[in-house]
Amino acid sequence: MDTWPGADGNLAPEPAIETLIIEVLLALMMVTVVALARTRNLFGVVVLFGVYSFLMATVLTVLDAVDVAMTEAAVGAGISTVLFLGALLLCRSEEARPVHRPWLPLLVSVAVGGLLVYGSLGMPVFSDPGAPAHRHVAQHYLANAMDETGAPNVVTAVLASYRGYDTLGETVVVFTAGAGVIALLRRRPGRRKP
């Protein structure tokens, strides 16, 4: 690892392969989503969603977001799939044939996509070290987190220390959602199907 090309602070001279991996994975994700939208069996949809989540976790690993990738693999592909299957068990697992052609949603989606593409053209290019996102508070975190908190993992330091108040809010949200599920599902299904 000592001979790693960016060790002296310069970017790696041959970034092509990293970009290529990311692009191939993103293309695979798009294929999965198209297959998912066309599948009518809900069990298949849930399994494809698990595939999609694993691909997302892989992309996040390549994007150096290891903490996020770990969470996505455990949550998106693990717990979400179990919850979807648990809900499917309580419902019917076949989607009805749509009664009308989805022209209006298609039009709205494409229009939104066009607007977003237009907006993204003004964004900094991929992996631009001079992008505003890299020049702001992130530099402070990377330079000082180790000395100020003693935790080499900057993500943990920011999550629990610098932005501890945020994380407290998120934990309360998770707790509230759990309480909501209890409130919704606590009562036994009493009324028979009409």
Binding site: T149, G150, A160
Partner: peptide
């Protein structure tokens, strides 16, 4: 710095306990 490390660890333990509880409870409910 030791205080920071202690605080981070305790807070992370709190998050872990809460998340485990919520996920298990939701699973049991379904």
């Amino acid at each position: 710095v030791a205080g920071q490390l202690r605080g981070i660890l305790l807070v992370e333990c709190g998050v872990a306990v809460a998340v485990t509880g919520v996920m298990l409870k939701v699973f049991y409910m379904f």
